[in-house]
Design a binder for these strands. Structure first.
Lengths: 340, 340
DNA sequence: TCCTGGCACTCGACTTCCCGGAGTGCCAGT
DNA sequence: ACTGGCACTCCGGGAAGTCGAGTGCCAGGA
């Protein structure tokens, strides 16, 4: 038996009511609140079918129905239109992001904005190095056997690393290396750098090769390995909205998951060029987040994508609103980056 | 009536038991668990006095006693010796911090280590710029009217800011400014820089003064105003240990406070040259943290202090252990910084 | 003077019981 | 195919009762 229009309408009503009230919804209150044009008994029959198909369930016999993860999924995919943001919201976003002075600043403002607008936990990934290009490399001597490498990416990200040199090295040598790495690497996509770095070492005169190799290994680490690590997080206090009711009684696992950068990156970092992505409950393949949903989106100047951002909340969340907000914020941030 | 030795001993026993069991402690179980050499009745009399003096209180009539903030304060000040760390713990600290490669890395490792050892929320302030000196300033042209300012402090901190120039500026001019700011500012304490920056502008030939003024204002912002902002946080999941019992029923206010950098800086940033500092309950002058205690310490190479670190937990915490850990970690971090 | 054992009392935590109400499934009727 | 009716289930919350840990106080003893 397939789901006719009315059954879908019933499912939508259940999701909307449950999200709004946080209480299992019964057939009677459903017909009262929505113009379904049928009696409670009919709705009950529909509900029985929906339950059989796995879209809703009863917490206990003789309680109302609650959407399952599959129910939310169907709702998101077929039953909801993304709400357009109000002009006021658009203006709020613009105003909030306008004052940003700095990449750090942009990211921090964005994450706070997201948390505030969605009233959920927000995560913003810094522009990932693997999708950036090298703008400039700087070498600053610290002592005779140490220097600092500063890498500036075209996305505005700046990474620094201390380089321990194998032996005393003069300032001139450092300047020399600086020139070499810049001519070789400036403007290159991060992904293309490894062979170029290798070439740098190979082309180096024998007596300086050791030093250059040293720099090269740090370069590779900085450019490629540690590449996507940076994240900003805000709004954890929003987890406590709705008491301990959401998240099946304990915030513990959720807070733990939020501390793991690797996990967060998996959640918001795997961005396809496509549009906003919604992961509901089990769909996050992380045990600790079985009771959570994640709405994420890529962002970047124009149509390219340099990083991800998103929010995390209870499966019982306002999907249309959240999706709209995440998408809008992602677009604004992208525009902002495009200006730089 | 003053507090004789036995009464203090009773207070200590109450604090220790309550911290261990999380339950109000009564006279009978007290004498069972500690060798006080007197009967429950006597202990009850002592308790009555302690209560009158405000060091303990009863949650309800006919329940055991619980320490008040004042009780914890007395305990910390007079009744507890700081535990020495076990060699295993010392080794753990050393091993954990040894691999650090970078200031960022040091800070992140430290904050995780602290959270893990104390099983509480840990906060580490990056070395504050106001206590650092300028090591090097770098100017990188981005476009004809934009450049990036990168400031490297002797503590290893790196700050960057975008500078919007008033008009097109050649690469040579940028290099020129770079030379000027470095000769003037390198090696200077941050606090001493404002007049020097002003001098830079004044000494500048008329036609370039505009550009230099622009750079100067960003410099001042970077060096002085935004100076102490950076923080790292870890272990928020530890707030959920002990159920919702700690923090009078709601994590909400605590999580909110933890999101405010300003608040955290107030808590761990105000470091005197002295030793570890303990703030109990109300002593943090922040409403949201009435049920929390903060143990903080300054750190830095040798005896100087460049930043603060600490942990936050329920007032009912293991003070001796926490203090010992915080102090030890602060010292190790200081040593680590001294090496660079 | 200080400590102790004894005793009556208090009061929260836990259990049990009970009841109302919301919600259900099913069935016969339109 | 929908509806009204009906019997049933079961959660939530209040009332009552019990248990036990803990207290304050007092009189007696070192």
């Amino acid at each position: 038996m397939s789901l006719d229009d009315r059954k879908l309408e019933v499912l939508r009503a259940i999701v909307e009511d449950y999200v709004a009230t946080q209480e299992p919804v019964g057939s009677k209150s459903l017909v009262e609140r929505h113009q379904l044009g049928v009696s409670p008994a009919t709705v009950r029959n529909d509900m029985a079918v929906l339950e059989e198909e796995g879209y809703i369930r009863q917490p206990h016999t003789s309680a109302g129905r609650v959407p399952t993860d599959a129910g939310y999924r169907l709702f998101v995919d077929r039953l909801s239109r993304v709400k357009a943001l109000s002009p006021a919201e658009r203006r709020a976003i613009e105003r909030f992001l306008a004052g940003a002075v700095d990449l750090d600043d942009v990211v921090h403002r964005t994450v706070r904005l997201l948390a505030q607008l969605t009233r959920q936990v927000a995560v913003v990934q810094y522009p990932s190095l693997s999708r950036s290009a090298v703008r400039h490399l700087e070498l600053v001597p610290i002592s005779s056997t140490r220097m600092m490498l500063v890498m500036i990416a075209d996305t505005g990200r700046v990474e620094q690393r201390l380089v321990e040199l194998p032996g005393p090295t003069s300032n001139d040598d450092v300047l020399d290396m600086r020139r070499q790495v810049n001519t070789k690497l400036s403007g290159q996509k991060m992904a293309d750098t490894p062979p170029l770095v290798q070439a740098l070492v190979d082309e180096c005169p024998q007596e300086k090769r050791n030093t250059m190799a040293c720099l090269a290994s740090v370069l590779l680490e900085t450019l490629v390995e540690r590449s996507d690590e940076r994240l900003a997080l805000a709004g954890t206090a929003n987890l406590t909205r709705g008491g301990v009711l959401d998240f099946q009684g304990s915030l513990r696992p959720v807070l733990e998951a939020l501390e793991e950068e690797v996990i967060l990156l998996k959640l918001i970092g795997e961005v396809e060029p496509s549009t906003t992505r919604v992961r509901i409950g089990d769909e996050n393949e992380i045990d600790n987040l079985r009771a959570a949903s994640v709405v994420s989106s890529g962002y970047g100047p124009g149509t390219t994508i340099v990083g991800g951002l998103g929010v995390l909340g209870p499966t019982r969340m306002d999907y249309p609103g959240t999706i709209a907000t995440v998408r809008a914020v992602a677009r604004y941030v992208g525009d902002l980056l495009a200006q730089n």
